[in-house]
Amino acid sequence: MRYLICIKQTPDTAELPKVKPEEAASGRLSVQLVVNPWDEHALEGGIQMMEKFGGEAGAITVGGEDAIERLRSALAMGCKDATLIKDTAADAWGVATLLAAAVRKMGNVTYVITGQMTVDGNSGTLPVALGRALGWPVLTGVARVVSADETAITVERIVGQARHTVTAPAPAVLAVVKEIGEPRYPTFINIRKAARMEIPVWTPADLGVNVPAPVVHMSDFRKPPAREARVVLFNGTPDEAAQALLDALLAEKVL
C-alpha cells in the first residue's frame, strides 16, 4: 500500500497574530513558517498507518522552493519520500487539480491523507475538492483508522458531536483531526537521512495539467476589530465574587 500525505507550509501558531494584512494579501510572510499544525497530525496518521498496515508513506506539498524545508520535516518524522509541486499561483481548486495529477502520475497511491484544514486559509475545502478531482470517496473528520488494506478502509469520524464508524472502498482520501495522534519527534537518524534525500520537483507542465485560473478573489485584507476588553475583576470570598459576576452577566443579558 502507498499513503500520500499532503502538507502545507503555514505560519507557526504563535506567529499567526503577527501576520500583517499586506503580507496576507501578497502571500509574502515575514513570520516563522512551519508544517501546518493539522498536517502534522496527518503525517503522524499516515506514518502510523504505514507501521500498522504496511506499505510506504510519502509526503507532498504545493508551494515555492522554500517549502522543501517542510518536506524535510516530513521525512524526519518518518516519511520514505517527498515531492514538491512547484506552484504558488493556484487557489484551492488549483491545488486540488495539481495534487490529483501528481497522484495519477505516481499511479500506486492507495490512500491520500490530509489535515482537516489549514491554519491560514481555514476553509477546510481542499480534501473534498481533491477527492472529487480524483473521483475517490472522501472521509473527513477522521479521528481513528480501525483497519485498512488494498481494498477497503474502516475509520471513526467525528461528525459534529457524534462519532460515526464508516467503511469505504480503496483508494480514498482521508482528512484527519488531531485525535488521530500527536506528531512524533524526528529521530536523529531520520533527520540525517532527510537532509541528504533528493526531493523531486515537479512543475504543472511535468504533470501535464493546466491549472484552472483562480475562481476565488480576496480583497480588503484587514485586522479584525480589537476586543475592547478591559477586564473587570471581582474580589472577596468565592461567594461574593460569584454573586458580583452573576450580576454583571445578567446586566449584559447573556444569561
Binding site: 505560519p11 501558531t13 499567526l16 497574530p17 501576520v19 494584512p21 496576507a24 491554519v119 491560514d120 486559509g121 481555514n122 475562481v215 476565488v216 478573489h217 480576496m218 480583497s219 480588503d220 485584507f221 484587514r222 485586522k223 479584525p224
Partner: peptide
Amino acid sequence: TRPIYSGNILVDVQVDG
C-alpha cells in the same frame, strides 16, 4: 467577509461563476 489566519485577518471574498 470571513476570517483567515485563524481569526487574525479579515478579508472580503468574491467568487467567479
